[in-house]
């Protein structure tokens, strides 16, 4: 029995911009872009772990990716766009959230806010810096240019040599360790959170499944990603023949 009067109250037409500006719309964008980025991080890790199979598979994998040509650029474009939307949306939400409490508590305490959740903006910003560094390191080759020019016997870019030799530098390795720890922290809140933001949790799903999903993904990524620099640095990966 909706009254006629209430139906006449007009509402601005809904559109994508309006949706994205709404608090739940913005959060769902964070969740979806986060999901894509998490999937990338996971795939990236699995691909890179081929390094433990020796130089041949990883170099072949690298060559395969390079050979994708325009498709590779498309993937790169999508990832970049996703990242930009994720960051832009986050930045906007951070500003709004700061503004929502103009006067802070003199004594602030909390019952259950986690370190990971509270530091999302900080871990996010440091991760952005790391992504730039990582691209400069292994994609553009500007960090250790002397290693970027190696080629294997088939003439392919020698990724194996580049990686293993690259992580002989303790500073580079330490930076990767720190960044991946932060990535794990970021994922541990982000992955659990995206289910809630997309509205697919229920109390029975939330604990333990969803609440543990974040830490589980974070830990898996941490172990997988750090295995490569640490194994390189500790000399567990055989140095490429002829190198050094």
């Amino acid at each position: 029995m909706a009254s006629a009067a209430s139906a006449t109250r007009s509402r601005a037409p809904s559109g994508p911009v309006k949706f994205l500006r709404s608090s739940i719309g913005a959060k769902s964008v964070m969740a979806l872009t986060g999901l894509i980025l998490t999937a990338f991080v996971f795939g990236h890790m699995v691909g890179n772990l081929q390094i433990f199979l020796g130089p041949e598979p990883i170099n072949r994998y690298g060559h395969f990716l390079q050979s994708l040509g325009e498709l590779l650029w498309l993937i790169r474009f999508v990832l970049l766009a996703t990242l930009i939307v994720h960051i832009a949306s986050a930045a906007r939400l951070i500003v709004l959230n700061r503004r929502a409490r103009p006067i802070a508590y003199v004594l602030d305490d909390s019952v259950q806010v986690t370190f990971a959740a509270r530091t999302m903006p900080w871990t996010g910003m440091i991760l952005l810096a790391f992504v730039v560094y990582h691209l400069a390191h292994f994609t553009l080759g500007t960090v250790q240019p002397e290693l970027f020019s190696h080629h294997d016997e088939l003439g392919r870019h020698d990724i194996y040599a580049m990686v293993v030799l690259g992580f002989q530098d303790w500073f580079v390795t330490a930076w990767y360790v720190v960044a991946n720890a932060l990535l794990a922290l970021h994922l541990s809140h982000g992955v659990s959170s995206l289910f809630q933001s997309l509205g697919v949790t229920t109390p029975s799903l939330r604990w333990p499944l969803v609440d543990l999903a974040g830490p589980a993904v974070g830990t898996a990524v941490l172990i997988g990603n750090l295995a490569i620099p640490l194994a390189s640095w500790l000399g567990l990966l055989e140095l490429p023949y002829g190198a050094m």
């Binding site: 739940i24 939400l93 959230n97 019952v111 259950q112 809630q196 997309l198 229920t202």
Partner: peptide, 29 residues
């Protein structure tokens, strides 16, 4: 502000309302 899934609200709610209501709101919206 916007929900960033800290669930601190649920911890202090005097009626102990579960954050599933937030998931439901997200879903409805």
């Amino acid at each position: 502000g916007n929900c960033t899934n800290h669930y601190e609200c649920m911890a202090v709610c005097p009626k102990e309302i579960d954050v599933r209501v937030i998931a439901e709101l997200n879903q409805e919206f």
